Simulated scan of single mutants.
Amino acid sequence: MNWQQRIEQALREQQQQNAYRQRQVHYGVNGRHVALNGRCYLNFSSNDYLGLSQHQAVIAAWQRGAERYGVGSGGSAHVSGFSAAHQQLEQQLADWLGYPRALLFISGYAANQAVLAALMRNGDAILADRLSHASLQEAAHLSPAQLRRFQHNRPEKLAALLQKKCLGQQLVITEGVFSMDGDTAPLVELQALAQQHAAWLLVDDAHGIGSYGDRGRGSCWQQNVKPEILVITFGKAFGVSGAAVLCSDFLAEYLLQFARHLIYSTAMPPAQACAVQAALHCIQQGDHLRQQLQSHIRQFRTGAAQLALPLADSESAIQPLLVGDNQQALQLAECLRTHGIWATAIRPPTVPLGSARLRLTLSATHQAQDIERLLEVLDVATR
């Protein structure tokens, strides 16, 4: 089998399994609407949980940053790409979340990969929630450490793994709010178990930061847990893009020396760092946005319960409607589109086999009538 035959076979198999992915070109998007193919849809597929991607203060900050710094950083942060805007943002994030240091990364994927690649050695063990993000699981597989996965949100299963012999160090990994299920990790129990075994805890709070906790400080703050490593991203509630790792001084210095994703990647544009600073200010002052989001979540879940819709057990902005079959999930998504609602069918391998779903996401920018419309269409589409 040559290269072309191998690729064609893989594509055929993807199509046969109704797992084929296709991109859609949009011509304007926000937390509430998305414009595609000449039509405007109610948007229930965005991670822009607070609507900050369209906030005028965030947009203006990016524009001012571009005027001052230009549109690119020009190099790695280790060479010439580390600006005053980057330094200020790192300090603001560290102060906000109560850590000695914050390090900026170009994406959450890169941050997770960088930390595991730099830290893990032969003889170490990574103990990861089975539903941890693909970036974490891939990094674990690529590392020299042994990957041991525990049943989703089951601390007793983690306890059993921690008791197994390990020649090196142990790192426990979980998400704060899980990206495909929308549920929250039992961080208090996980941290207690990690501490009992002298292990470190890494929490990826991409979907919790900004939306939860006092002043939007996220899942860990809400549960009064301070992991040794906290990863946050700016592409969800912040409405921008990029990520940061919050940690101790000595770990930050170690990552600066050995994290290849930092050393060999062009830094985020300084103008982007300016926009993230503005988004951070909006989040810190955004109790009204979080209250609005929680109101939408309650409204949707109450209505869904009355319709007996098969929702996952989630109190977050992520509300998965479980379907099971790939083709049925695609058909349901298409039915919603004919009624002016944009929702994405999520299929394996992003989620486990047999658990295809519509990943419905709510935003503070939605209005009560939007939620009612979604429920009306789901009532018709699922009969």
Rank of each mutant, 00 (worst) to 15 (best):
A237T: 12
H261M: 11
E189K: 11
L190P: 01
C220Y: 03
R215E: 14
V225P: 03
V245F: 02
V240Y: 03
A237Q: 08
G218H: 07
F258V: 04
G210D: 02
I232T: 12
L202W: 01
G213T: 03
A252L: 10
K236Q: 13
L230K: 11
R217G: 00
P227Q: 09
H207N: 13
V203W: 02
V203D: 02
A192T: 15
L256M: 14
D214Q: 13
H261F: 00
F234H: 05
L262I: 15
E189D: 15
A194V: 02
A192C: 09
A198W: 08
I232Y: 05
K236H: 14
F250Q: 15
Q196P: 08
Q223P: 07
A198I: 02
V225F: 03
I229L: 15
C220L: 13
F258E: 14
A199I: 08
S248A: 13
L255C: 07
L246I: 12
L251C: 11
T233Q: 11
L246W: 08
L193P: 04
D214A: 12
K236M: 09
E189I: 01
I229S: 03
R215D: 09
D214K: 10
K226S: 07
Q196L: 13
G213C: 08
S211Y: 00
R215Y: 06
E189G: 14
G218C: 05
G218R: 03
A198T: 13
G235N: 15
P227G: 06
F258S: 14
A192Y: 02
P227V: 09
C247H: 08
L230A: 06
G213E: 05
Q223N: 07
V240A: 03
D204Y: 10
G210V: 09
G218Y: 01
G216D: 10
F238H: 04
F234T: 08
H197A: 15
G210T: 09
Q195Y: 00
F238W: 07
L202Y: 01
G208C: 03
E228T: 01
L262Y: 00
K226C: 04
E253D: 15
Q191R: 09
H207E: 11
A237L: 10
I209Y: 01
K236G: 00
G216Q: 09
G239P: 10
I229N: 01
Q191E: 04
H261R: 12
G218F: 03
L230G: 03
D204E: 10
I209E: 00
E228N: 09
